[in-house]
Structures are given as structure tokens and as C-alpha cells.
Write a protein that binds this DNA or RNA. Sequence first.
DNA 1: GGGCCCGCAGGG
DNA 2: CCCTGCGGGCCC
Length: 307
Amino acid sequence: MISEYEKTRNINIQRNKELLESLGLDKPLVEPKEQKRKPSTTSKKRKSTATNDEAEEPSQPATKSQCIEIATNPDSTVRRSSRNTGKHVDYRSEIRGDQVLPLAFSSGVKISENEGPLGRDDGVRKHDPKTYGSIPGVEVGTWWETRKGCSIDAIHAPWVGGISGGRQGAYSVALSGGYDDDVDLGYAFTYTGSGGRDLKGTKAAPKNLRTAPQSSDQTFENPFNQMLKRSSETKKPVRVIRGFKLKSPYAPSEGYRYDGLYHVEKAWTEKGLNPKGYLVCKFAFKRLPNQPSLPVREVSQSDETTE
DNA sequence: GGGCCCGCAGGG
DNA sequence: CCCTGCGGGCCC
């Protein structure tokens, strides 16, 4: 028995896929090369492309070779899971003891060995997140345990919000599975806008939430949705991070990963995947060429509730 | 697992 | 100031 929710979701996903196809986004511009991870033993070097300024120019994405050359530091690859926070897990002995590696590492979900926050530990930014294009020193594939790390490294400033931007368009977006009918092809994806959620709850039950179910239409009046629409006009590059909650083969198994620059190809509205069919703002993203290929999860996500 | 409630950075 | 938002921690 397929639930109404499932049915609507399948329809929406199909529609969004067709939309991406109609835009020519069903295939990557460049076929991803095979991801070879050579077990280098050279010391870690972090190339900081010292091209600051230029908030107007899309800065160059890091090349693939740059990322691969970063060596594996055995001590720094110890990965903590946000799900295990406060559980007093000795990750180091876990790895050295029984050779169990965290999934994010063993399945090759990372591209770069970079692990944030980079640079400073005091939480002060070295770079301004209110810029278009890449952030100096932060390679495509850089991984953080929490959204706070993304913020410190100026990749995506908001700790919760999915969209950050300015007058000429969005600076960055976070894909974290907030909307079930979004389609993620890696090199292209659909994204749902902000708003239309009742974050306060009722007077009787003031929840003071940060996220909540859809309870009204989204519109392009919403400043964040407006920014993304602007992006589709100005073609400013948008930084994209993918989070572990995203249901996609391109999602990291833990934490958040910087996946490089995308363009917003189209903005539209459609009936969203919610009980009342409230309208949502939708956006089609396309990844810019000449960036490291995205890692794919080996374990397929068979979390379909097929019963 | 789910419910609740919190700080925080950003934008108006 | 105010309010928002694809987190996260804690408690159960």
C-alpha cells in the first residue's frame, strides 16, 4: 500500500527530473573521471590561493589534482560523528584497534582531505562569506562536522538557514534534505525555497522552532527566494554544501561537505510535497565545469518504507 | 527513536 | 531592534 505522501512524492520527483532533463541537466557537462585515491605519504600541504578581493569575479574552483595531492594525515583523519557527540567514543583507538573506519572515509565520500574548521580555532572568520564564488584556501570537498564549521570557514554563513545571499543573488545554499521531493543528480539538482513554515507554533503551544512543517505558500517575496531568483538572472556562482541528512547518493554520510560552485538555471513555483499542497519556490541548479568530481556513496540508500 | 528548546548569524 | 531559518543538544 503506497501512502498518499509517497504517491505525491513520486509524482513530484518525476516532474522535477523531467524539468532537469528539459534543461539539459540530465547529463554532466564533463563525464566524471574515475576517482583514484593514491595512498600518498607526503606531508600535508594546504595550498592557499591568495586571491582574495574580487567579490565580483567568480574565482577559480580548485583543480582535481590539487585535492588529490593532499596527503592523508593519519591523525587528522580521525572523524567524529555529530551523532556520537557526548558519547565519549575514543575514535582513535577505535580505528587503530579494530580497523573500523568511519563510513565517510571508508566509502570515499570525501574528495579533499581538508577538514574544517580550517585555520583559526577561535571561531573568527578569515574570509567574508558575503562573496560570490569560492573561498580562498577552502577546497572543493572540504568536510565539517557541523554547520558551525561551514560558517567559520565562510562557505555558508547561517547556522540553520539553507540560503545565504545578497542583492546580486545567493552566496551559498545548504542541501540537507529539508524537502523530500527535491531531486539530486549531483551535477544538477532541484532546491526548494524558504518560508511558508509556522516556526512559532500556536499561542497555546509556542514551540519556538527553527524548522517546521509547511503551513502556507512560499513566494518570491521571501528575501531568500528572491536571492535565488536573482541568481538565475545574474548567473553568479553559488557555493553548495551537502549535509548528511540529504537523501541522495551524493550526500556525505556524516557532517557537511563543500561541493563547489553551481549556477541557478531556473526559478519557478509548484505544488509542494505537503498535505495541503501549498506552493513552494523551486530552483534548478547546475554544477560549473572544471571542478573535482563528486564522490558517490557506495551503499545505495534503500530507505524506502516498502511495507 | 521523537519532542522540546536553545544560541546564533543574517537580513529587514 | 525585530524576526527568521534544510541545527543541534538534551531529555525522555
